[in-house]
Design a protein around this nucleic acid. Sequence first.
RNA 1: GCGCCCGUAGCUCAGUGGACAGAGCAACGGCCUUCUAAGCCGUCGGCCGGAGGUUCGAAUCCUCCCGGGCGUACCA
Length: 542
Amino acid sequence: MLKSSIASILSLAWESLDLPPATVEVYPSDRPEFGDFSSNLPLIGAKAAGLPPRKLAEQLVPLLLVGPFARVEIAGPGFINLFLKPAVIHAALQEVIRSGDRFGSSDSGEKGSLQIEFVSSNPTGPLTVGHGRQAVLGDVLASLYTALGYAVTREYYFNDEGRQIDLLAESLWACYRRLSGEERVIPEGGYHGEYLIDIARELKDEVEDRFPDFDAPAAQFFRRAAVSRIKETIKDDLIRLGVGFDRWFSESDLHRSGKVTAALASLRERNGIYEKDGAIWLQAEENGGVKDSVLIRSDGRPTYLMVDIAYHIDKYDRGFDRVIDVQGADHQVEQSCMKAAMRILGYPEKFLNYAVHQFVSIKEGEETARMSTRAGRFICLRDLTDEIGRDVVRYFMIARKPESHLQFDLELARAESLDNPVYYIQYAHTRISSIFRKAGPIACGLEEVDLAPLKTPGELELIKRLDRFPEVVSGAALGFAPHLLAGYTLDLARAFHAYYGEQRVLGTDKGLMKARLALLQGLQTVFRRSLEILGMSIPEEM
RNA sequence: GCGCCCGUAGCUCAGUGGACAGAGCAACGGCCUUCUAAGCCGUCGGCCGGAGGUUCGAAUCCUCCCGGGCGUACCA
């Protein structure tokens, strides 16, 4: 990569001045007259050197005149502007072409194992548009980390036990009785969605009036019936979005295998719990948590947090080096308590990480609405995906930074279907494919082509953008910020379309044409890799 | 009250220490005998919520204030 090799040259120059250490920063210039790259090293190092920035720059510049630079200038208060020799930029393109689909990726597994847990919505209803954001966020993060060289496991945790499921079962049963003409109310805090009526109908056909009362056998039957059907619905919702999981984990397994009890024992051993008011509490506050929380209620039932701690112990025991939990911003207290529990258990601080995102609101016309599964007020992820397509949903969900609220404008998403960043990016890939189709066999062996004919500012700019791709991938992964890749790809498409409009590839003289075909091959590689990571389709024609 | 997040162009949002603040949409005006016009080019549009502070330099870091979201359960 250009940036890192330039940074190391600057570091060497700095060291040879025999001054106290300084942080070397290099960044792509945002204006042509500032060269290809700029550094603020003289500004940062002035204090350490005891020299005014421009004086310091004057000492540095002569040391830089060898190597990749055609020209080095001092500008403004003490910036160093670096102009690269074209051959150096050409070499960067060559690397893209030679790496092919490995460009921007490391070998799988060399960075260790990583589990990403996401969505993990309770099986109490179909996924909503809100879950869609988390689904895409988690999926793309997983792809990013895979590209970085981690062995990634995508996992979904089903809370298929507990109070919410009991309420769900009772709500379902009430719907079922209503089908027999009885007046039944949905329990306080229960579920009102239409999907329960559909399930109730199926069950009515199956068992007729075998469960007139909500007794223990009925509760068990309706719990199982509801959970198993809704789990399948959720899995299908995700498949339609192109999101796949390596493992579906059930809370009930933790109870059955005694891991919840064992987790409590481990916390007790390490003095992380205490009793108060008949309940057992986690000593979270002393361990960096926001506040102490109940683990075992006074009636003996474990809380969600208790079970989740057991789940995280299980993750650790499975040998993951790191785990990332993708969660909504409403789980703040839970997160700090989990972290506290991990500290009590003595796990490494970097083991558990949270990728937190804000919510999605739906805008339709002038109305903006939050969603609530319980109130039955939501837009199904499936309906949205079926209507506007997987690629568009995925891109919209990922294009905003996670910590910002995402306003999903339904009308825009529908109406924009012909004038949409998604198609804009895919169209760039398509245009390249089209040129290669027309070029035929002349486009072979581009790894060996002489790239010297590439000399327009647009061409050199495109290559520098390609060169940035690996850094974008790692930045997006490490910062839990897939929107950086989405934005990068869109900018690259913009730059390509502009280039396409101003220069021709086919029909120019042979040397130039081959060099431009090589550039297109590099571009196509990066478009393909980006779209792959974003989980979008890669059309050859549109 | 306390904690976390957000506040940038009419709208939706990028930009988190660098040199005149960017894009898309919307509005207006150009460009198809040439590799797909699902495109390109141009114009219009912003005291970066407000006030202080740190810094050679602040949309970006710190403090306070205002506005919005979420949380502050023996819910999940």
